[in-house]
């Protein structure tokens, strides 16, 4: 188990001895069994591991959707475990971007409206919202599809709408749950290149769950989960 060397800079994500237990007594499921993990700002991390290894639970905690049972989770030094529901919602609103598994776009809603959704909750005025949403769609190459609903778009296009929605707020951390899960290799490559460019050009920290080892090459660091613990944690450039 490696931890990044302590520097003067605060890590954006810091987990100390985090465990998560669902249920109680004999039926209790230990999803995480004491994780120590630090992610620095600007990193591109892939998270891998078999299902049930705790990677999704870990992602939910990083995404401030869930809180640890024991241990502490600090986001930019803020203790998320002690936050209220609304405080965590605010953190998600202003600092996090999500690319959910299976796109999770609003059906019967145009691509443009899907993309501008996070800005509505930030109280951005309408015209500014429109402009930024169009810009985000242009960035993912869908400016001509802005008025199509998800049902009228291909899987790759839907995923790009989801990406546009995730980065429109310019989040600190972008969490992606199998963003290439349902796509062929060409579309997967396009998506990965988009994520890489956001990481490089905007300095957005990316944490991505994937099953495909060849997607991990885009990342600067690779974390493997096994049985609720971090199994291996290394940068792809380094040796195992």
């Amino acid at each position: 188990m490696t931890t990044t060397p302590v520097s003067g800079k605060q890590p954006i994500i810091a987990m100390r001895n985090v465990s998560k237990v669902y249920g109680c007594g004999r039926a209790a499921v230990h999803a995480l069994r004491g994780i120590n993990l630090q992610i620095e700002e600007g990193e591109f991390v892939t998270v891998m591991g078999p299902s049930g290894s705790g990677k999704s639970t870990c992602m939910n905690i990083i995404g401030c959707l869930d809180t640890p049972t024991t241990g502490s989770f600090l986001f930019k030094g803020l203790d998320v475990g002690g936050m209220s529901r609304n405080q965590r919602a605010m953190l998600r609103r202003y600092a996090l971007g999500f690319i959910f598994q299976g796109f999770n776009l609003l059906s019967r809603t145009s691509a443009l409206e899907n993309v501008e959704l996070p800005l509505i909750y930030r109280g951005t005025p309408v015209h500014q919202r429109r402009e930024r949403a169009m810009e985000a769609l242009r960035l993912v190459g869908l400016e001509d599809w802005s008025h199509h609903t998800p049902g009228e778009l291909s899987g790759g296009q839907q995923q790009r709408v989801a990406i546009a929605r995730a980065i429109i707020t310019n989040p600190k951390v972008l969490l992606a749950d199998e963003p290439t899960g349902n796509l062929d290799s060409r579309r997967s490559k396009e998506i990965m290149e988009l994520l890489t460019s956001f990481n490089r050009e905007r300095g957005i920290t990316v944490v991505m769950v994937t099953h495909e080892a060849n997607m991990a090459v885009y990342a600067s660091r690779r974390i493997n989960f096994l049985d609720g613990l971090v199994d291996t944690d290394n940068s792809t450039g380094g040796t195992n």
Partner: peptide, 16 residues
């Protein structure tokens, strides 16, 4: 419900 889930996840408050 899923729509509500999406809205909550991207930072909507309960009351919103």
């Amino acid at each position: 419900t899923r729509e509500i889930g999406i809205r909550l996840a991207i930072g909507a408050l309960e009351k919103e």
